[in-house]
Design a protein around this nucleic acid. Structure first.
Lengths: 342, 342
DNA sequence: CTGTTAGCGCCTTCAG
DNA sequence: CTGAAGGCGCTAACAG
């Protein structure tokens, strides 16, 4: 089944295509009467202008930058990053829009990459919390689409902006140790996630190093891994609290998980931080809003720097390799969920 | 400045346009040598295929739906809505992308609407937390782009999904009254915001009705209006606490502002909810994460329903007017920041 | 005011 | 394997 075109409308209304075009575009230079006749024809035929075809003859080319990320997870951290993107976009001279791609699985991710390359609807691509296989890097380069990764893994062999998870894990744990804690738990995701990321294991590695560096023992019971998110963390924390030798502090691998831990602690009638200290990771806006002590990884700034980098690459005549922007160092932001143990 | 076309590449490489097209599309029926020559020309010219033009002769089109909202404010509630959009998109048979438009001012908003209409890069438009003037509605209709409003105002004369702020304000306040509170404060935005919204005044109206309905007096000191956001709410709450006749409960016009109030209360050495109860409005995901009592306005669902509606309109043969989806009623979600006064 | 005529940039036959 | 020609659906001069 094929859609009616402007030509069909013209024939039906007994006018030229130019007139139909004028009507569609609200051009005042059409008589009331003709306009009415054309409108009727449009109605009867159920005509709808083909938006693709409209773009072609026009000068105004809407430019867009693509942002691709995982669907359904990490949404607040993505939102914080997006805010940075938006700020950079707002300040940019050219008027770019944002096209969002949500990958619902690894397979779906590759499908989308392929279609982005083949249709090239964007002039640059920001890859958030996802790895970009060599194969697609080559295709994107071929298609002349610059790209940048925004994530929290280190040592990628392509342009990425992000902090070192091991270091962040160490910072968080050392902060708790320095407050005087000795029994410190780790609550996080499984070590290998659905998209092949090992964020949790990296942050855990940092935790381990800090503990060992301080000569502290890690009780196996205190390492609680589970699904992503608030609820799993809450459950795990509840379990942790059953341990008679329960920890006096917890390092949660994300802010959301930290909030899950805090909820569990309070449900159990204990206080944060007096009875148990909790430190998160991310420094989401909501960490500030909830007084959560956490590791700042400059989410908003990452989006901003990433976009600025893409913009520079896009406007560069030659696609010279620009230096990849770097984030300020990770840092612990002390707030109200940590204190010295009693 | 104009972009190089396939023809320029062809000329430079000394081949026909057909060959260039084949190279771009990875068609194997091109000799190694020719391909190399074409690639070189592409590189030198910085040629990038015009994705608009590619779509026209093809069957497969990359389809997109636009979402426009205010820049810089309300980002978490937008994120929650976007999650719903994304879910609906994921379930849809057709493969739509999302194009995000951020309006940085009322003027910029209209500019963007105009360019969306004229370039029609999207097949449907979701207008979030923004009003759509009659003028642009007509233009969008003309251009065959269906639209839907997602917001929290009532009685708009165009298809909108959203809850009644007055009712929500009443619900929140009645809940506090029913708990036994008599001295109830309101903390919110100025009554008229930058984009012409009167959300704050509507929620306040609900508050007023509930108070009057219960025969309670409203102390002028207890109505604290200020800038949007956490910080202003925190400051206002701090001021409120100086009042010797301080309230025993607070209705904050958004969840973020509620968190600001809670921070102020705790800073002042008081407890929530034992000393002062706080209820918010929105039911952001983070309200759940922080145990905030609030008014649920189904943010995620609003995005989902809105997108489904657009999808139906897009696929409808004629642009029949479909019934606008409705959200479930507003409701108070009791959590841990409210209790009976002492 | 309105019809006609070129394209927009690319893809896809169709011959060669 | 490759060049030329026709057309995708619409807009934008240009004459009337």
């Amino acid at each position: 089944m094929t859609y009616p075109t402007i030509r069909d409308v013209a024939r039906k209304a007994g006018v030229g295509v130019g007139t139909v075009s004028r009507v569609i575009n609200n051009n005042p230079r059409v008589s009331q009467e003709t306009q009415a006749r054309v409108m009727d024809a449009i109605q009867e035929l159920g005509f709808r202008p083909n938006h693709i075809a409209r773009q072609l003859p026009r000068k105004t080319r809407l430019r867009s930058i693509g942002v691709i990320t995982q669907a359904f997870v990490n949404y607040y951290s993505f939102a914080d990053r997006l805010r940075g993107v938006q700020k950079a976009l707002y300040r940019a001279p050219a008027n770019f829009e944002l096209t969002l791609y949500h990958a619902s699985s690894l397979e779906n991710y590759e499908e989308r990459l392929a279609s982005i390359v083949s249709a090239s609807p964007v002039e640059g691509l920001m890859v958030v919390d996802l790895d970009l296989p060599e194969e697609y890097r080559a295709m994107l380069t071929m298609a002349g689409i610059p790209f940048i990764g925004i994530n929290h893994f280190q040592g990628a062999d392509w342009p990425c902006i992000g902090g070192d998870n091991v270091e962040g894990g160490t910072l968080a744990t050392e902060y708790l140790i320095q407050l005087g804690h000795r029994r410190i738990a780790y609550v996080g995701d499984e070590f290998l996630d659905y998209y092949g990321f090992i964020t949790s294991s990296e942050r855990f590695e940092g935790y381990k190093r800090a503990m060992e560096g301080a000569g502290l023992e890690i009780d196996d019971q205190w390492v609680m891994l589970g699904e992503f998110g608030y609820e799993a963390a809450r459950q795990n924390m509840l379990r942790l609290l059953n341990d008679p030798q329960r920890p006096t502090a917890v390092f949660a691998m994300t802010d959301i998980q930290a909030l899950g831990c805090i909820a569990a602690i309070r449900e159990s009638g204990l206080r944060v931080p007096e009875d148990i200290s909790v430190i998160g990771y991310d420094d989401l806006d909501l960490a500030y809003h909830t007084g959560l002590t956490t590791v700042r990884q400059h989410l908003e700034l990452s989006g901003q720097l990433g976009l600025e980098y893409l913009l520079r690459l896009i406007s560069a005549d030659a696609r010279a390799s620009l230096p990849v922007p770097r984030l300020p160092p990770l840092e612990v932001v002390p707030r109200q969920t940590t204190c010295a143990p009693r």
